[in-house]
Design a protein around this nucleic acid. Structure first.
Ligand SMILES: [Zn+2]
Length: 678
DNA sequence: GCAAGGTC
């Protein structure tokens, strides 16, 4: 270390959460006077201010983690230790750790400048506690990394936020206590019953997510479609055929549909009672937050949310896009939009499009802002830096972000919704057309298809002849399957996990083989998943509820306000866990047998003739519990099928067994019954 | 080996 990289005799060490933030802080406080240095490849900055030296170093997220003290179950003893000692995969942390230790050794004061939330407070404090002196610690508070805000935050640097630190520690420790203990309960149960060891897990975020996925999949597997009838009316206008939509919806029974059809047949013609055209505006979508990006990448390219996230993180590290782990749909007003668009013009694909955008807006660049916000980061936007060679999927994600950014400045998409309403025999029918007036933002972000449909001009009083008239039988539809992306969206909507963890945590459920994906990315539950969910609901019901996160959040708020101590909250959690575990222990083996059976490790006493799993004692065919349930659902729906369509018995069973809309267990049971003629 | 949360 010579010259500009020699540490000043006295200096304040500013600890940032990540190198990119450290760079922004150095730039804001020192401008060109800040010298960038490296130690083991980790950057830090030195600058001389009026009131002494400043050194800016960086963490890389959490440098400390929890490890158990001792063995066994339950386990309530643990300690905080360097991350690279706790997790093998965290070796890259070491060089950040070493650099901060080196920088902290000779500092005379410390400023925690990590993100202003409980995690950031903890990250910075643990470093200062380990390498420095908490008595000389201060806190910088800011919600964005703009120069003005950083300068102001430094000027107003305050006392260290010990309560925030306590809340952060408490959150980690609570998650650890619940997660590790209940995961061990699962694994020990299985081992007690089968002698086998296998990784199983449960946690505050993953388990409610498992519950949501299993519940939805069960509804689908047990779904019996019911018949519905609609009128199919085709008219001829100027020699062209058009299909009309019956505005009364659907008929439940064939009888009602037939009555309507004969009335219509008698009328023979339809009279136009209303013809209108409505101008519709579709506002531009706001710039992406991570969840929206993951949803769109899944919808358009079939990319999993985790893959999308990893790509976005890489684009961010290559300075092509802003910070991606954000919930915000808002672009900062301080951003130089014209500058970014000007640089994006250099990229072939966007040159002409950006010309159009600048012309269209007349240079007035005001983005559409979304509703969702984030305490520390704006929506995702391109930096304008020209990308090198990107892979196919990398380009796709980058392109989505750029186009969505452009679209945010554009005008509404305008179209005409044309509607003609017909009447005959007291029934109403509709013919709808769509004409695009102005492409607007869809010119830039064209991934949502909008099809034009031309319909003839008609006036009130016009009569048209019915050309074809029929009844078609349709069916009620099962609830939509989750995809990985919609499961992540579900987590976002109920407020569990964070941008950084949601996709990763859903992947854990697939890794554990609790869930799998079927056709078109449909999330399906496995037998193991269903049984792990059953286990948790029975012995640790708190853990499958989203509400546990709400309770955690309330505790953290109370700790932040100083209304309750970390020790008190942890003490309560331990006592709740202790009593749940005491109730669970005597039934550990029995619970393990269920898990063992779901994995095929324990032979059933009596086999379900359909799937070979353990028979349910109350079922005359010897079906397992799932197929017994399916049988009950099938019987329940039979009366309804008879009433609506006059179908029952073997014909009913045969029909259902071939319907792809019917749930899998339902089809299997129907197939079994129809092959036996019952 | 088990969680969830930071970031590389
Ligand atoms: Zn079965």
């Amino acid at each position: 270390m010579t010259g500009k990289c020699r540490l000043p005799d006295t200096y304040t060490l500013i600890v940032a959460e990540k190198p990119k933030a450290a760079a922004r802080i150095a730039l804001a406080l020192g401008g060109r006077r800040a010298s960038k240095c490296t130690y083991n490849g980790v950057p830090y900055w030195i600058l001389q201010a009026e009131n002494g030296g400043i050194v800016i170093g960086s963490a890389a997220g959490h440098l400390f983690g929890i490890r158990p003290l001792g063995k066994g179950f339950p386990i309530f003893t643990y300690e905080w230790a360097p991350r690279f000692e706790v997790e093998k995969k965290s070796q890259h942390i070491r060089k950040f750790y070493d650099t901060l230790r080196m920088l902290a050794g000779r500092a005379s004061a410390y400023i925690n400048a990590c993100d202003y939330d409980i995690e950031g407070s903890l990250i910075g404090y643990m470093i200062i506690e380990a390498f420095g002196e908490p008595r000389k610690a201060y806190r910088m508070k800011f919600s964005s990394l703009t120069e003005e805000e950083l300068v102001e935050a430094y000027r107003r640097v305050g006392e260290i936020d010990l309560r925030m630190v306590e809340a952060g520690r408490c959150r980690h420790e609570l998650d650890w206590l619940w997660g590790i203990n209940v995961s061990r309960a699962l694994m020990l149960s299985l081992r007690r019953a089968t002698g086998q060891w296998r990784v199983l897990s449960a946690g505050r975020v993953q388990s409610p997510t498992l519950a949501a996925a299993v519940e939805r999949d069960m509804q689908r597997r047990l779904f019996v479609p019911l018949p519905l009838f609609t009128l199919k009316v085709q008219v001829e206008i100027d020699g062209k055929a058009y299909s009309l939509e019956y505005m009364g919806g659907v008929f439940e029974t064939r009888g009602e549909a037939e009555k309507a059809r004969s009335a219509l047949r008698k009328a023979g013609t339809l009279r136009v009672v209303d013809a209108s055209s409505r101008r519709m505006l579709e506002q531009p979508p706001p710039a992406f937050n991570l969840g929206d990006l993951q949803m769109e990448a899944s919808r358009i390219y079939g990319l999993s949310p985790y893959k999308t996230q990893r790509i976005a993180e890489q684009l961010y590290l290559n300075a092509l896009i802003s910070y991606p782990r954000t919930n915000s749909q808002k672009l900062p007003s301080t951003l130089n939009y014209a500058g970014i668009l000007g640089r994006l013009k250099e990229i072939n694909d966007y040159g002409r499009l950006i010309d159009t955008l600048l012309e269209e807006t007349g240079g007035k660049l005001k983005p559409r802002q979304g509703r969702k916000d984030d305490p520390a980061h704006p929506a995702i936007y391109p930096t304008g830096r020209k990308p090198g060679k990107l892979g196919r999927d990398e380009w796709r994600i980058y392109d989505l972000i750029v186009r969505r950014f452009m679209a945010a400045f554009s005008k509404p998409h305008v179209y005409l919704r044309e509607t003609v309403i017909f009447n005959a025999a007291g029934m109403r029918f509709r013919l709808s057309g769509l004409r695009i007036v102005e492409e607007g933002w869809r010119r830039y972000y064209y991934f949502k298809k909008h099809r034009e449909k031309v319909i003839p001009r008609l006036r009130i009083g016009d009569e048209v002849k019915i050309r074809k008239l029929g009844i078609s039988m349709t069916y009620t539809k099962p609830p939509q399957a989750y995809t990985k992306a919609s499961l992540v969206k579900w987590m976002e909507n109920v407020g569990i996990g964070t941008e950084a963890t949601r996709a990763r945590i859903t992947e854990i459920l697939f890794e554990r083989k609790y869930l799998s994906t079927g056709p078109r990315g449909a999330v399906e539950s496995t037998d193991l998943g269903i049984n792990v969910y059953g286990f948790l609901k029975e012995f640790f019901p708190d853990l499958v509820e989203v509400d546990l996160t709400r309770r955690f959040e309330e505790y953290m708020e109370q700790i932040k306000k100083g209304e309750v101590s970390r020790e008190k909250v942890l003490g309560e959690a331990k006592s709740v866990l202790t009593s749940l575990i005491e109730a669970f222990k005597p039934r550990m083996g029995e619970a393990g047998v269920q898990l063992g059976k779901s994995l095929g490790l324990i032979k059933p006493v009596r086999k379900c003739p359909i799937c070979g799993k353990e028979s349910s004692p109350d079922n005359i065919y010897g079906f397992c519990q799932h197929h017994s349930k399916a049988l009950r659902e099938l019987r329940k729906a039979e009366a309804e099928w008879m009433r609506r369509a006059g179908i029952r018995g073997v014909r009913y069973a045969r029909m259902i067994s071939r319907m792809s809309l019917a749930g899998r267990w339902i089809r299997e049971v129907a197939g079994y019954l129809s092959s036996r003629g019952t």
